[in-house]
């Protein structure tokens, strides 16, 4: 399917989900579904670098929070509408990804992973010490009273995040089938051989870190409006970092389908468990699932299905 047509289908799906939500019209459902959509964006963004290129980013929470605090800053200074804040937050996170990549990717790949892990902590420190955006105590964000075309602001946020999810998945699928994606896959398989086949490895890795950062920034930008009150502990919550990794790994990293499946399954499960048990228990579950999958099913749910299909195909033929 051509990329534009796929985007059309993705957007159509988003609209259908939204319409179904409007039919039920339950405020809690909106908020829960928003979180799942947000994880689709984060997991898909992570997978562009992690799954396609083979570089682990532990700092998803840092990128997400940078997106969120960009919104807080813009809210306090120029008060742009949300749909303009999102691309700005994305661009800032893209530059952050580029800078991190440039400083560490010329060395061994593992330094990038370590640096992203430390980066989230430093950004956290930065925000805690930055009183303009609320410092350690956090900041209240007052939602606009009304938005055009939508019944309420929650509905508007939900629609926005669904659209972002459609964009993220379409971008990931486009990358996967493009010349860029082939180059990234070559880097993932064998970086030296890729370079010797003419692949400009450093440049492509930097494109991947920037693109991944951009999408993570998108996911974070609407967050302050969603929660109404942002503090560093909430925006830099380790759950974002863990879920961004766990969802693609559990879903499967080789294509855009994996993170989507992972985010929908794990995201929904966590929403249910948070309501019924506690948020700490569901985070423990994510950790255990992550460790289990990387150990016994490294190709995720998609990989398990492939195996099953191949077995069946073998029996038929």
């Amino acid at each position: 399917m051509a990329p534009l047509r796929f985007f059309g289908v993705a957007l159509g799906t988003a609209v259908a989900v939204f319409a179904a939500g409007a039919f039920v019209h339950n405020e809690y459902l909106y908020l829960a579904a928003y979180t799942v959509a947000q994880y689709i964006v984060l997991a898909t963004a992570w997978n562009i670098l992690g799954g396609y290129t083979g570089y682990v980013n532990f700092g998803a929470a840092g990128f997400f929070a940078t997106g969120a605090y960009t919104s807080v800053f813009l809210h306090k200074t120029v008060a742009l509408p949300l749909f303009l804040m999102i691309p700005i937050a994305g661009l800032i996170c893209a530059v952050l990804g580029l800078a991190m990549g440039y400083l560490t990717l010329r060395l061994r790949g593992v330094f990038f992973a370590i640096a992203t892990l430390a980066m989230a902590i430093v950004l956290h420190t930065l925000v805690v010490n930055w009183s303009f955006v609320g410092g350690a105590r956090g900041a209240y964000i007052i939602r606009p009273r009304e938005v055009m075309l939508f019944a309420g602001y929650s509905q508007y946020l939900f629609a926005t995040m669904l659209a972002l999810a459609a964009i993220a998945v379409s971008v990931a699928r486009w990358v996967e089938h493009s010349r860029l994606g082939r180059g990234l896959a070559a880097i993932r398989d064998d970086e030296t051989a890729a370079e010797c086949s003419g692949v400009p490895t450093l440049r492509l890795k930097l494109v991947a870190t920037s693109l991944s950062g951009l999408l993570m920034g998108f996911a974070g930008a609407p967050f302050p409006y969603y929660v109404g009150y942002v503090d560093p502990a909430g925006a830099f919550n380790l759950a974002y970092g863990v879920n961004s990794i766990a969802m693609p790994l559990i879903g499967g990293m080789s294509s855009w389908v994996g993170p989507l499946i992972g985010a929908v399954l794990l995201g929904t499960l966590q929403q249910v468990l948070t309501v019924t048990i506690s948020s700490a228990v569901n985070l423990l579950l994510v950790g255990v699932l992550l460790v289990t999958f990387v150990t016994v099913a490294p190709n995720g749910i998609v990989g398990l299905f492939d195996k099953l299909r191949r077995k069946r195909g073998g029996r038929d033929g």
Partner: peptide, 8 residues
């Protein structure tokens, strides 16, 4: 990812 899971 395994060690990250253990940490978590």
């Amino acid at each position: 990812a395994f060690f990250f899971g253990i940490l978590f």
